[in-house]
Design a protein around this nucleic acid. Structure first.
Lengths: 150, 150
DNA sequence: CACCATTAAGTTGTGCACGATCTAGTTGCA
DNA sequence: TGCAACTAGATCGTGCACAACTTAATGGTG
């Protein structure tokens, strides 16, 4: 396997483009999600939190944060808004008084039905094949892992 | 070419993972950039704006916004902070009084030297080969384009 | 020429992300 | 047992992103 020499200038530009493309793609997703979730009254990060609860049931703030890679500084106000919206209930854990367990309310559980068509809509909006999505997911996972080292 | 049937459940999960991985990767990049740009006193979006100015010289807010896909609601305060930091100067255009041209100050131009090593450092932090970066960039570009349609 | 639609930039309000700090509860161990 | 280290969550401050709106300048058309 031969490695063609890649000039510095191209490396540097390529780097900018990748970081920037990532930034841009993330915001583009946000924009389409905003539209898809408008009727549900959820933002994209709120939707992510609901997904975690729909999939894995009641759990402490800490566990949600680990799955979404978010800290309490972001999650506390977000969950508070979900609670105000009547989708979620927060309870101090009996075993460990430091911990707060987040439960879905009936309204929160019911919202799942409305959310079901969203993923397919988003999938279609990307315009990628399943194979390409797999590749993309793999590369993104590796990048995130590598960046988390630093 | 045969197409293996892909169950709905996998499609939906795959979709979540891609959107979420994108979100996570974007934040991971932000975190590493935060560290790399700390000494320059720039945030990542401010760095992007400076890159545009370093590369293409003085230009109106509108032009910067088109390159970064940002509107005046985001750029106005950002540029104001760059101006407060003494890196940038804003001048009403003489030909069109609606337009504001953004110039680099001497300090802003001088900062470029300090910023030069940043891209290589970021490139290394991704842990990807040049070939993979090209693939990633291509997929992200297509996704963004497709999402912008919707 | 006058008027109105358009455009550039700025402003405001909401929400996310994150570092830093605080409080209260828990655990370890000397 | 008592105290220090740690942990979960909340709070605060800063900055980004974006929708909605405002202001001022421009340009086209009747």
């Amino acid at each position: 396997m031969t490695t063609l020499p890649v000039p510095d200038s191209e490396l540097l530009r390529l780097d900018h483009q990748v970081c920037f493309q990532l930034h841009a793609a993330s915001r583009a997703f946000g924009s389409v999600y905003r539209d898809a979730l408008k009727d549900l009254g959820l933002t994209y990060p709120q939707y992510l939190a609901m997904l975690v609860l729909w999939e894995h049931g009641p759990q402490p703030v800490k566990a949600i944060g680990e799955q979404l890679r978010l800290d309490s500084g972001t999650l506390s106000p977000l969950l508070k808004r979900l609670e105000t919206a009547g989708l979620v209930r927060r309870e101090r854990s009996a075993e460990d008084e430091r911990s707060v367990t987040v439960h879905l309310t009936t309204a929160g559980e019911d919202l799942r039905a409305q959310a079901l068509p969203v993923p397919r809509r988003m999938l279609a909006a990307t315009g990628l094949t399943v194979e390409e999505l797999r590749t993309l997911r793999g590369l993104l996972g590796r990048v995130t892992e590598a960046l988390d080292e630093a």
